[in-house]
Design a protein around this nucleic acid. Structure first.
Lengths: 246, 246
DNA sequence: CGGGGGTTTGACCATAGTCAAAGCACGTGG
DNA sequence: CCACGTGCTTTGACTATGGTCAAACCCCCG
């Protein structure tokens, strides 16, 4: 068993307890969930489920990153979502997975068998309310992404992706100077391309261009430094105040 | 007051009663909603709310079609959703509209003031459950559309849009021969372009091309006839069984 | 008859895709 | 320790798809 980095027995030590689907549950409700949960871990690159597969569980990402994507017969694929820690996987009431789900990095899920979870949802408004809230947020994110996919140039797409990741890192990391953000990019060029609706060559070219123009600095191959976040945002095409999370 | 085509007093005559957010409500719950509802009508082309506006109501589309779209400062716009009869507008718990909402055709909404509706949602699991279900469906639709926007060619995009509308018409209209579908396109070329992430010229060219190739037949400017639905689906790039609603 | 919204078509151009080769970093085995 | 292979990335040359700009068209309506 992999080391989870927290106490698997006790939801009180869970790193996502305040943002996951269970965030609103009372002590007794949590106890019920705690009794039925189990963990599953996946190595980077491993499939979690394939589109069309029967899915007998639902669950939350505890650590790591997973991708949701759709494939066309001829091999074109589009990533339609990134699951980050606290994001929920699966849909109560649906047995077949609609997308391919792949672990982008090493990933641990906190799972529940689907049927018991559905039963509990019916009896636990706190659970349903929280899931509704999370789903509405995801819907907003998906719609924001539609603007990126439908209307932005390749350069703006790259800048948008980097800005999103940078913002997320900033929201997790403790306060540090805004003008010296940096993070490890968890995605390959191909994964970025699948997310952005581009080819990996175009991604590579535009990343190089942003580097050449001083908007980003590469430290090694995967570490990105943002010397001036506002300059990056200016490249996204969004208006300054709003951005992708308007 | 416009003629609504049904009895505004009685939810029992409402055309969307079985699919709207209130579909699961019991008689007494319905009575409460009935007491607080009010109708608003908009002419084709009129704005319903602008992005950033304060929204003090939520509601359901009863008749007509409305669009959700996002605009960039330089005028590029992307439609991120189409609201059809029974679709829900607004988000409990959020005061500011995140998108521009425009009536595409003459449209009637069944509205509730936001605060009382939120209160009722907290006390009425049937309402929250139904809204969750509808939101999950919308999320699926948004993600399906991400594939269209990110990976499909102009021709495939047009075919996908026509196939979606045709399917929807078929699901509403009583059984008729599958090989003779036809419908009025409620969207201008520009609206189609905004939905598909194309320019209106490209839309026009690709519609002409599909007509030239016999995949569709135009009867006047807006009426579309689909002589062979399978042939249309073949143009979407989706595999035959699944399609956009896989 | 004239005007306007929506649409079609054409000529040209720019952006991103395709195909191909080479480079780089890292791990394995000789 | 170095050669080799693999996976990922970069770069180049060329092409194709869809965008831009501009003009004309169509149809309905006043």
């Amino acid at each position: 068993m992999t080391d989870l980095g927290f106490n698997a027995k006790d939801c009180g030590t869970c790193p996502i307890q305040h943002r996951a689907v269970c965030a609103r549950c009372e002590t007794d409700e949590l106890a019920t969930l705690e009794a039925m949960k189990y963990y599953r871990s996946f190595e980077a690159g491993q499939p979690i489920v394939w589109s069309g597969d029967r899915m007998d569980f639902v669950g939350s990402v505890v650590t790591g990153v997973a991708s949701l994507s759709q494939a066309m017969e001829d091999g074109r694929t589009q990533m339609v979502g990134l699951l980050l820690p606290s994001d929920f996987l699966g849909r109560p009431g649906r047995a077949a997975a609609p997308y391919d789900v792949v672990a982008v990095t090493n990933t641990t899920l906190c799972c529940f068998r689907r049927k018991p979870f559905e039963t509990m949802m019916g009896a636990t408004p706190h659970l349903a309310q929280r899931l509704l809230e999370m789903t509405l947020d995801e819907l907003d994110a998906a719609r924001e992404w539609m603007l990126v996919l439908g209307r932005k140039t390749a350069r703006e797409k790259i800048a948008s992706l980097l800005a999103i990741i940078a913002r997320r890192e900033a929201s997790l990391a403790p306060e540090r100077g805004q003008d010296d953000m940096s993070f490890d990019l968890p995605l390959t060029r191909e994964a970025m391309a699948d997310y952005l609706g581009l080819t990996l060559e175009t991604v590579s070219r535009q990343v190089s261009a942003l580097k050449r123009d001083g908007v980003i600095v590469l430290d090694g191959k995967r570490r990105i430094v943002i010397p001036d976040f506002d300059a990056l945002v200016a490249e996204t095409g969004d208006d300054v105040d709003g951005g992708v999370f308007a």
